[in-house]
Structure formats: C-alpha cells, structure tokens
C-alpha cells in the first residue's frame, strides 16, 4: 500500500482511473482549445494564426491584457503590505490569539466569492459604509463614487485574496529561527533594521508564494472584476466571456484564453524563478 518509498510502477495502478479521466476531460479539451484558436473564422474552414495577429495588432486587446496583469500585481503588493503585520501579530499572540487569527483568515477563504464581492458592493455603494461614515463625520460633502472604480476594485480584491497571502507568510514566519531576531536585538539593531535585514529576507519564500497566488487569483477573479469594477473596466476574464458567450467567436475567444493563460503562468514562472534566485543571493551573503 503506502509503505516505504518506492520506484515500482505497478504501485501506480490506483492512479490510473484519475489519469484516464484527466486525459479525456482535461488534456484533450485543452488540445482542442489550442486547435480551435488556430482557425481563421468561427466556421472552422481554414487554419491560420490570424487570431493571435489580430490580438497583438489591436490596441484595445493589448491594453486589456496589460491592465489585467497590472491589477493582479497591485492587489498582490497591497496584500503583501497587510499580510506581514498580520503575520507578526500572529507570531506575537498566544494560543487563543493564534486560533482567532487563523479563524479570521480561513473564514473568508471558505465563504463564497460572490458573497464576499456582494459585501464590497454594500461597503462601497452610494449608501454604503464608507460613504455614510465620511458624510456623518463631515469629511465629505456628497457621496463619492467608489463602486465601479479602479481603486475600489483593488481594495475589494485585496481583501478577498488576502488569506492566500497571509497563510504562506505566517507559515514562513513560523519557520524563522527566533534566535536570529534576538541576536540582532542583542547587537543593537532597531526594529526596522531587524525587519528589513533579518525577518523579510528569511521569509521571502512565503512572500513569493503568496504574491504569486494572489496575483493569479486577482487577475482571474471574474465575479469581483465585473461586479465591483463594473462594465466600463474591461479585463481579460470578462473579455473572454463576452467573446465566447456573447459574440460566440470561438477561435478568437480560444486565442484570448490561451494568451491570458500563457501571460499569467509566464509571470508566475518568471517572478518565481528570479525572486528565488534573489533569495538565494541573500542567503549567500
């Protein structure tokens, strides 16, 4: 069964049914997707790379892609800024405090994304919490438009994806040897210096893992993008949906989804490898 480590291929038999399912319902569809993206028209008559040429020649399409990637990066940065203080608070808490923080992180992770997005509609809306607070405090004269703006979208997505950042950051903070911090303190380093020269460099792997998770999740968050961003902010997920379900242009929507996939995975791969090399460089110092 699952005794000691083995190389024996016969032991892989239990994985066969799932492998078959994945070939039929995962690998095959993706091959079909690539194939369909190579047709000139939705009638599937002539093969040509025209969909890709069309995309990269079109200013609008390229802008949509870049803005989607930018959104992912902004949300990931902002959640990084919040995840470390939460992580440090976690480290400094006792048993009950830690359980409470874990609960706070896990709960939104498990609640439906539509529900979390809906909450942000309530918070950012015209009669929402932010507006009514600001009006009551007399800081604003009239309700500001927060929903359907880029800033509103970034804040909402940051909250929605924060758990994905907080968990890996906490995990690597827990792995940090506390004696290193004590040693730095003993040698007279200030808190800022300890954080930036000891804590941060040694927890880079967790930060990268979280950054990549949040980046990918925020860039692909269709529901939040469409409901909080509104119709005027067009991003790749809604662009793909509109071209596939609205216009029913299969080849173009297939090409769009492949370009988007390659862009997201490409960035994840690039950021992952370069920053890991950077982290190793710090280790060597």
């Amino acid at each position: 069964m699952s005794g000691s480590a083995t190389h024996e291929p016969r032991q892989l038999l239990p994985a066969l049914p799932l492998a078959a399912l994945f070939l039929a319902a995962f690998v095959l569809p993706l091959i079909v997707l690539v194939f369909i993206s190579l047709f000139r028209t939705p009638q599937f008559l002539e093969l040509s790379p025209i969909q890709y040429v069309k995309f990269f020649r079109d200013q609008f399409s390229v802008t949509v892609l870049l803005e989607t990637l930018l959104l992912g990066a902004e949300v990931a940065m902002l959640s990084l800024l919040l995840a470390y203080p939460i992580g440090l608070a976690y480290l400094g808490s006792g048993k009950i405090g830690r359980a409470l923080i874990t609960f706070l992180i896990i709960l939104p992770l498990l609640t439906s994304s539509v529900v979390r997005t809906f909450a942000w509609i309530v918070i950012l809306g015209r009669d929402g919490i932010v507006n009514s607070t600001m009006l009551t405090l007399g800081l604003w004269d009239s309700p500001a438009r927060l929903l359907y703006t880029w800033g509103g979208l970034v804040v909402a997505l940051t909250q929605i994806q924060l758990p994905l950042m907080a968990l890996p950051v906490i995990n690597s903070l827990l792995r940090l040897n506390p004696n290193l911090v004590k040693a730095a303190e003993g040698l007279g380093a200030g808190r800022f210096r300890i954080f930036f020269t000891v804590v941060l460099p040694l927890t880079v792997p967790g930060a990268i893992a979280g950054w990549l998770l949040v980046f990918a999740a925020a860039a692909t968050a269709f529901i939040t993008q469409t409901l909080v961003g509104g119709g005027r902010i067009v991003l790749m997920p809604s662009y793909i949906y509109q071209q596939a379900v609205g216009v029913q242009d299969w080849p173009f929507s297939a090409a769009l989804s492949l370009i988007f996939t390659v862009a997201v995975i490409g960035i994840v791969f690039l950021v992952g490898t370069t920053s890991r090399r950077f982290a190793r460089g710090i280790d060597a110092v």
């Binding site: 995962f26 569809p29 993706l30 860039a219 596939a244 929507s253 297939a254 996939t261 997201v264």
Partner: peptide, 9 residues
C-alpha cells in the same frame, strides 16, 4: 491554469 481557459475548452 486559469480556470476560465479550462471552462471554455
């Protein structure tokens, strides 16, 4: 993989 590509496929 961004799941939308999978859904569409």
């Amino acid at each position: 993989l961004p799941a939308m590509a999978f859904g569409l496929s």
